[in-house]
Structure formats: structure tokens, C-alpha cells
């Protein structure tokens, strides 16, 4: 399989994730869409790494996974905090930083 196939698939997944961030309102689903975008970027990285025969891309992908895990942990912590304080879980409602 040519690398182009993987790259186009990665572009499609990224576009789906970006459309999801724009169209959904629940912060939980928006975090899921961010995961989609990060994973599509990982797919592109690994496809290029395979194409060049260079394993550095795999280390890069691992670091992306670490950053994604951090983002999930902080984001889910925020969602739980919002839920505890009875703030509606809707990104259009929670548009002010002021608590």
C-alpha cells in the first residue's frame, strides 16, 4: 500500500474530528474529537516514518500519546469539577472564565 493512502485516510479522520469539535456542544464529546485529531496526526507521522524507514517517528508518536493522555486527564478533571459545581455541561453556556 502506498503512503498516500495512509495520508489521505489521516486527512479524512482529521477533518471528521475538526467537524465534530465545531458541531458538538458537550465538552466530553469535544475531548473525544480532539482524540480523533491527535490520532490522525499519529497515523500520518507513522506513515511518513515507514516511508523514510526512520524509527524516530515512532518516538514522536509515543510523545504525542503522552501529551494526549495529559490533555485527557486535565480535561476530564475540568468536566468533573464543572459537574460538581452545577455548571451546565455545554460549551456555549460556559463561555466565561469567571466562576
Amino acid at each position: 500500500m502506498g503512503t498516500t493512502w495512509y495520508l489521505v485516510l489521516s486527512a479524512l479522520l482529521f477533518a471528521i474530528g475538526a467537524g465534530g469539535v465545531l458541531v458538538r456542544r458537550s465538552p466530553l464529546v469535544i475531548l473525544l474529537c480532539l482524540e480523533l485529531m491527535l490520532n490522525s496526526a499519529n497515523l500520518a507521522l507513522l506513515a511518513f516514518g515507514r516511508n523514510l524507514g526512520n524509527a524516530d517517528a515512532q518516538v514522536f508518536a509515543m510523545i504525542v500519546m503522552v501529551v494526549a493522555a495529559c490533555e485527557v486527564v486535565v480535561g476530564l478533571g475540568l468536566i468533573v469539577a464543572m459537574y460538581r459545581r452545577r455548571i451546565p455541561l455545554d460549551v456555549d453556556e460556559a463561555r466565561e472564565l469567571r466562576g
Partner: peptide, 16 residues
């Protein structure tokens, strides 16, 4: 990356 994970874990505990 390991430092970042530690900071994120502490941050999540503080937030939640």
C-alpha cells in the same frame, strides 16, 4: 514527557 504526566496528574487531583 514524564514530568508533564506528573504535572497533569497533580493538576487533575487539584481540579477534581
Amino acid at each position: 514527557a514524564s514530568l508533564l504526566l506528573l504535572i497533569a496528574a497533580v493538576g487533575a487531583v487539584v481540579l477534581a
